[in-house]
Structure formats: structure tokens, C-alpha cells
Design a protein around this nucleic acid. Sequence first.
DNA 1: CGATAGCCTGTGGTCAGACCACAGGGGGAT
DNA 2: ATCCCCCTGTGGTCTGACCACAGGCTATCG
Lengths: 240, 240
Amino acid sequence: MADQPARAWQLVLEHIERDLLDGRIGPGDHLPSERELATTLGVGRSSVREAFRVLEVLGLIRTSTGSGPQSGAIVIATPTGGMSALLRLQVAAQGFPLDDVVRTRLVLEDAVVTAIAASASRDTARTHQLLDAMDATDLTPADFLALDAQLHLSLAEASGNTVIAAMMAGLRSSIESYVQAGVVAIADWPAMATRLRTEHRALVAAIDAADVETSRTLVHDHITGYYTSAGLTRGIHSQN
Amino acid sequence: MADQPARAWQLVLEHIERDLLDGRIGPGDHLPSERELATTLGVGRSSVREAFRVLEVLGLIRTSTGSGPQSGAIVIATPTGGMSALLRLQVAAQGFPLDDVVRTRLVLEDAVVTAIAASASRDTARTHQLLDAMDATDLTPADFLALDAQLHLSLAEASGNTVIAAMMAGLRSSIESYVQAGVVAIADWPAMATRLRTEHRALVAAIDAADVETSRTLVHDHITGYYTSAGLTRGIHSQN
DNA sequence: CGATAGCCTGTGGTCAGACCACAGGGGGAT
DNA sequence: ATCCCCCTGTGGTCTGACCACAGGCTATCG
């Protein structure tokens, strides 16, 4: 509320935010060129660039060189990237304890599963596709975990809540490096992979059967079980 | 995974992230000066500044001019600001539908209330303090809503989950402008304020009494009730 | 007349250099 | 011993200059 000196790049950011809020620009539209915005707002191009950089990392715009309709800064509003960057860096900087990340994932995953299982119609085609892909026997742990991430993300997307889906993606990527590192703590990886496959299929089956309670239990045990095995948590209680 | 041309500012960002991940720098530490980092990494100072700007908006660092121990870029890891900026801009750019934001808030608020009510010990001192502050009769709607935001945030913080607390703060700020605009849709504001006060007290009482189920019901009705009255939702179903 | 090759323009990406305001420390003056 | 001022190094900003790139336009050629 209390505007400090109001740095130049913040001015640019606020200008663009106001344009977005008032509907003057929206997804698919072009932002003015850096040079044009600079002269319009009376700031240097470098300040405009700093604001653009922020918008880009936050997943709000996409920039391209060259000319033509695809060049310049275009509003895209892709929340996943920004959420991932934010959570990843915050975890790295110890702003978010790992335990809280896992706990939050439990909360969201529970909500996702509940929503899908309780809804009248559900589209789990993509999920089943990933389920099959994970049956391949020649997957490296990294490949397997990447598919696992996609599978859980597909559920989040199937829930129809874009905010939760973005948060899930972010939470996942924020602990990705730790999960990768935790693989070594698992003595028998093939056995773990088999167990995860089984749990996934059971979970999806419960969801498809609209069995809310079973779905919730399975997803909770699935996640806590894995993190415990990988030695990534010091004490996750249900909190839900 | 697939690194594209690798822009200069991304290089800087990755360098810093690696230093964070490997523990070479942490909260409270100073980053090298912009000029030093530029020469170290072989990039221009403007590129370093763009990376710093991103880190600043994400709440990872704080920059100050001048000299001395408080000057320069310092790692702070304050997640709230970044989460707010991200969600606020994404909602403004229509990347997040308002309904999804509200639905997500319901999910998180439910988790928060459940966690506090179910925990053995709880610290709701700050919450009670805000409860009393909201009894003042000379509050403008804006003041009242600001306190309301703080109250819900205090609950999130009391739950002990920093990730959820940050997300709640972000969700709140992302819809703040809409909430402010929605006040006009409420015919009898004083009556609404009274109703909100009552609901708040009942909710906190249920939490303090460790009554999980009542707490969940109250918080759900409290939120859906308000948004419906303010005409901000087209159809929020429980999803939980 | 039509197709094609090449120029021309405008975009973001980057760098170098120059200021400025600011805050603090150290050294000189009192 | 105290106080004050300069000096240094910080981020903040602007300017100007390149570069690579992509697309449209145009002149050329078949």
C-alpha cells in the first residue's frame, strides 16, 4: 500500500498490471515494444526489460526475437512455470521447509482426488495412458519419476482446478532435486517401482469407481509411503 | 530439461540457484555485488540485474543501496511477496479463473482449520487479537477487509505450514481488487460486517474447542457465503 | 507474368560506460 | 578523545551501441 520511492521497473510492472486488470490487454495480445514502452513511460529500456523479465519468469509473457506476428512480448498466462520457479527457489533458499512442501502436497492431492472421484463425469484418459507408459521395464529411476510426476499432474488437471494444478506442478518441481537424490536411499528400486505401479493402479481404480474414501486413503498412503522410504521427511503427520 | 540458447540472465539465475542448493549461500548471506558477479560469470551487469530483479520479486533477496552490512543483495527467503505477485498477476491476466482461486482457498482453509483444531496445542493469540480489533465500529469496508485478511492469515500461520500460509496470502491478494469492488454489491454492509464478526467468533471458538467437524463446516460456509453475497462466484461447489 | 532471392526493417538480447543517491567507514581536524 | 567530512563501494538508472533473428517487401530473373 505504502509506495516507497517507486523504482522505475515497478512503475512498468504496475502499468502493465493495470492494463491487464482493466482488460486493455489479455492473453494473445502483444505488449508494446520495449523501446516504445520506455519512451511512453519515461524510463530507460533497461528498466522495461527488468519488468519484462519478471513477467516472463512468472509465466505471464513470452518473448521472441525477429519480426512478424509471433515476435515481441505476448501475453500467455501460463501459471505452471512461474509457480515452479517460485517454489523451487524458495525451497532452495530454505524459505520453505521440505516437510511443509510434502504436507501441502498431501492436502492438495487429497482435494484433487476427492474432487475427481466425487464428480459426475471424469476424464482420466491421459492418466491411464501414463499408467501404461510406466509399465515399461526399461525405465531409469529418473524416467520413472518423470512419468510419476506427469501422472499426478494429470490428475490435478482432471480435477479442473487450474490453480491447484499449477501449485501441484510447482510443489513437485520444488522437491524434484531432492527426490532424485533420494533414489539412492531406496535399496531395491525395482521393487519400489512395482509397488508404486500397483498403488497407482489401485488409486485410479478407486477414483474411476467414484469411491471417495478409498481414493483419499490410497493417495495419502501412497505419498507418505514413498517419502518415508526415500528418507525425505522427518515426520509427516496427516494434518488432514 | 532441454536448455535452449541459455540466455545470459538465466545463467546467472542458475548459478545462484546452484549456490543455494549446495548451501554455499543461505538466508542472511550477501550475494556478490552486481559488478563482481558480472565479471565472474562473463556477462554484462544488466543481465545480472535482470536475474536479481526476478529473485527480488520472488521474495528471495532484498537489495539496498549504500554501504555497510545492510547494503547489497541479501538472501531473505520471504515467500509471501512472491506468491502474492504471481497469483495476482496470473489472475489479472486471466491465467487463473476467479472460481478456481476461491475453490483453492476453500481447500486450503479447510486444511488449515483441520490442522489447528486437531493439533494438541494451538496458539490463537494473534487471531483473538484481530478478532477484537474487528469489533471497532468505525471501520471502513476496506479496513475491515484488511483485518479479515489478516485474521485468516493468522490462522494459516498458526497451522505451522509456511507453504500453505504463503499460498493463502497469495490467493487473498490475488482477489483483493475484486473483493474491494464487490463491496458495492452488498446492500447492507453493517449487517454483513456483523454477520462476519459472528461467524469469525464461532469459527475460532470451534477451533479452540478442538471441534474439527464444526470448524470445517463453519469455515466452508463462511467463505462461500461471503463470496456469494458479493457476487464474485458463478458456482462454487464444495469440491471437498 | 510468376517465382525467387536478397535487402530492409523492427524485434528482443546483450554489453559497456556513464552518472546518481545513498550509507557507512576511516582519517583528519578540532 | 571527539566530531565531522570525504572517500569508497553499493544498487538504480539511463544512453547508446551492437548482434542475431524473422518476416515482409522489392527487385530481379526465368
